[in-house]
């Protein structure tokens, strides 16, 4: 007879998915709750920097595309909250943890969207980096997370193409538009690289997550994929690469790149980026402004239920 733990590890090694009702180590459950809810919060907080340009989108087509993209992100947030709830936690508690700063969301959303080109840069680079990570997570060991990733990846690839297409329009536009595109690339390139997290040696949660196959590839390997795929995309746009140390390494078959500013990385992660406070305050404000609506819904449902019970008793 195998112990539950041995059976769990057998499944992990055999690439069988772990499902909500299966036995799992408590640390595995906690690790998943942390990672999936962080992912859900990222989708929801990510609605703000892009939402910042919905009312200023420069054509009706772009406005519709951006609205539906931000709406999709809300939808991703919903699936991911549901996936987290399969682990025995409540969405309200997860949201409270994010609002108190106890739970994190992707640091990239603490950078401001200053110009219209930032919307293109986010679609292209930020969604692009997210996809590299998420494609790998389609093979994650927890069933509900893996299935959410498969669904989300399809929509994210669509967003990435739309973002890149927006950048093409700017890069091929007037000199001012091209400068706007270059500026957005310069500001978002490095933060996009930071999305893969610290170097493997420094990564707090990596080793255990790899053993349990929650994570399937290391931060540095995923980051390298993204660096390599982005070079020809920048060339096609006719823009300058923001990394002046970038060089093809024939021996490795990859690009070597300049070092990330890790001080900035930790500064933003620790809550001191441009928009950390603004993002959380915005979320809290919308949540508090909506409290009377949620209360009214609860009260109305209770009244309806009481009426139904009364009718049943009378009958």
């Amino acid at each position: 007879m195998m112990t539950p733990e041995q059976n769990f590890m057998r499944k992990i090694e055999a690439e069988e998915k772990i499902e909500p009702k299966d036995w799992m180590p408590e640390a595995y459950r906690q690790n998943l709750i942390r990672q999936i809810s962080q992912h859900a919060h990222s989708e929801v907080i990510g609605m703000q920097p892009e939402g910042n340009w919905i009312t200023r989108a420069p054509s009706l087509r772009r406005k519709a595309v951006l609205l539906s993209k931000v709406q999709d992100e809300g939808g991703h947030g919903l699936y991911l909250y549901s996936a987290t709830e399969t682990l025995g936690v409540k969405r309200a508690d997860l949201i409270a943890a994010m609002q108190s700063g106890e739970a994190k969301y992707a640091s990239i959303f603490n950078y401001p969207t200053q110009t219209w080109a930032d919307i293109g840069a986010i679609g292209w680079l930020v969604d692009g980096a997210a996809i590299v990570n998420q494609v790998s997570l389609q093979r994650t060991s927890y069933g509900p997370y893996s299935r959410a990733m498969i669904r989300i990846c399809k929509e994210e690839s669509f967003h990435q193409r739309q973002g890149y297409e927006l950048m093409i329009a700017l890069a091929h536009g007037s000199p001012a538009q091209k400068a706007m595109a270059q500026d957005a690339l310069n500001r978002f390139y490095w933060p996009a690289l930071m999305m893969f997290g610290p170097h493997d040696a420094e990564s707090a949660h990596s080793a255990k997550s790899m053993t349990w196959k929650i994570k399937r590839e290391t931060n540095d390997d995923l980051r390298q994929k993204f660096i390599d795929q982005t070079v020809p995309q920048i060339e096609f746009l006719g823009l300058e690469h923001p990394d002046k140390d970038l060089k093809w390494n024939a021996e490795r078959g990859h690009y070597d790149s300049g070092e990330i500013d890790w001080q900035e990385f930790y500064n933003v992660i620790n809550g001191n980026g441009h928009c950390n406070r603004q993002r959380v305050e915005h979320h809290i404000r919308a949540h508090e402004e909506g409290a009377w609506v949620r209360d009214a819904m609860t009260a109305y449902n209770a009244k309806q239920q009481a009426k139904t019970t009364e009718q049943r008793q009378a009958a």
Partner: peptide, 16 residues
């Protein structure tokens, strides 16, 4: 203008 300002996530999506 309601996007990211809705009273809860489902309603935010519906208004969009």
């Amino acid at each position: 203008e309601w996007t990211s300002n809705g009273p809860f996530l489902e309603e935010d999506i519906a208004l969009s």
